Amino acid sequence: MFAAESARVPFGVPIGPLGETHRVFCVARSPLAAVPSIIGENRVKKSYRFRRNHLRRILGHDILPEEIVDPLFCAVISYVYWFELCLSHNPSVIFRVDRESDDQQLGDFVGRRIVRSDDIYRNSRPRRKRKLTFEPADLCRLPNDLLVRFAVIATKLGYAEDALQVATLLETVSAQGPLEHT
């Protein structure tokens, strides 16, 4: 939520505009692992509207109308656009929360040792998350240009294995002919 530089956020404490001098790091999660959580989070109207309104205001992108037509499409496009926004702030560090190997780099950046707890991998609002089934092969029903952007963001965030999976799906889809999104 901080990437939007908003004085109002749907959850937690806002930070408002970053100002002239600021140091930025980006917290990321595997794109393929994040999709089921985003599908669930998109059902929370104030969270969805917050992201939708700020992406439209800042980047000029509308993730979808108020009514979510295809939850998978909406989750992927939300991930892509949100991380395009995050990366537009030129973060000095990308902290992949699911990679302990990133702890030292973030610790050096913030000037303190990073200590992981068992809670780091948990949803902070578990009651809002429904059990969702998602297989990467489900991405085949999405438009090719969105899958390309998804793979590019995965690469920029340091998730080469996710980008490779998406690229492999793209090759499969391309071999079968163009898809149309409904």
Rank of each mutant, 00 (worst) to 15 (best):
Y79D: 07
L170A: 12
L164Q: 12
V35S: 01
R57V: 02
S124G: 15
A3K: 07
Y121H: 06
R141G: 01
E41I: 12
P136T: 01
V69G: 13
V44D: 05
R57C: 02
F109S: 07
R51T: 13
G16C: 13
A3S: 15
Y79A: 02
S6D: 15
V166Y: 05
Q104D: 14
R51S: 08
N53G: 14
R8T: 15
R128F: 13
R99L: 10
R43V: 10
C26A: 15
F73M: 09
S47P: 04
A154L: 02
V69S: 15
L18V: 06
V93Y: 01
V76R: 00
R113V: 14
I153Y: 00
F83E: 02
R96C: 04
K156F: 05
C140N: 08
T172G: 10
P31D: 02
D108L: 06
Y81F: 13
A137V: 04
A167N: 10
D102N: 11
R23Y: 05
E180G: 14
I77M: 05
V152C: 01
A154Y: 03
A175P: 06
S92G: 11
V148H: 10
I39H: 04
V148K: 11
L106A: 04
L142M: 09
A33E: 00
A175C: 09
P91Y: 04
L169Y: 06
L139H: 01
V13Q: 08
N123Q: 03
R52I: 14
G19S: 09
T182P: 03
L142Q: 08
S101E: 12
R130G: 14
R130F: 09
C140P: 00
D108G: 11
E84N: 10
L106C: 08
A28H: 02
D108R: 09
E67H: 10
V80Y: 05
A175V: 08
D138H: 12
L59M: 10
L179A: 08
P14G: 05
V27L: 05
Q104I: 10
G177K: 11
A34I: 00
L59S: 11
S6P: 14
L72D: 07
E161R: 12
V148W: 07
T155C: 01
L87W: 00
L55Q: 09
S47L: 14
D162Q: 06
D118Y: 02
I38T: 10
V152K: 03
R23G: 13
I114F: 04
P143S: 05
P91E: 01
G19I: 00
F2P: 04
P178M: 04
N90E: 12
A163Q: 03
V27G: 06
K46N: 15
V35P: 06
P31R: 00
F2D: 11
G16W: 09
P65G: 15
G12P: 10
T182L: 12
E20D: 11
A28T: 10
C86H: 04
V13T: 14
F73W: 15
C74Y: 08
L164K: 11
L59Y: 02
S101F: 00
A163I: 04
W82I: 03
V97A: 15
V9S: 01
R52C: 14
V110S: 06
V27M: 04
L59V: 09
A4T: 06
H61R: 14
T133Y: 13
R96L: 03
R127Y: 07
R49P: 08
V152Y: 00
V110P: 07
K129W: 05
L132A: 15
D145A: 15
Y121W: 08
P126S: 06
Q176H: 14
S30L: 02
A75G: 14
K129I: 09
V24M: 01
V24G: 00
H181Q: 13
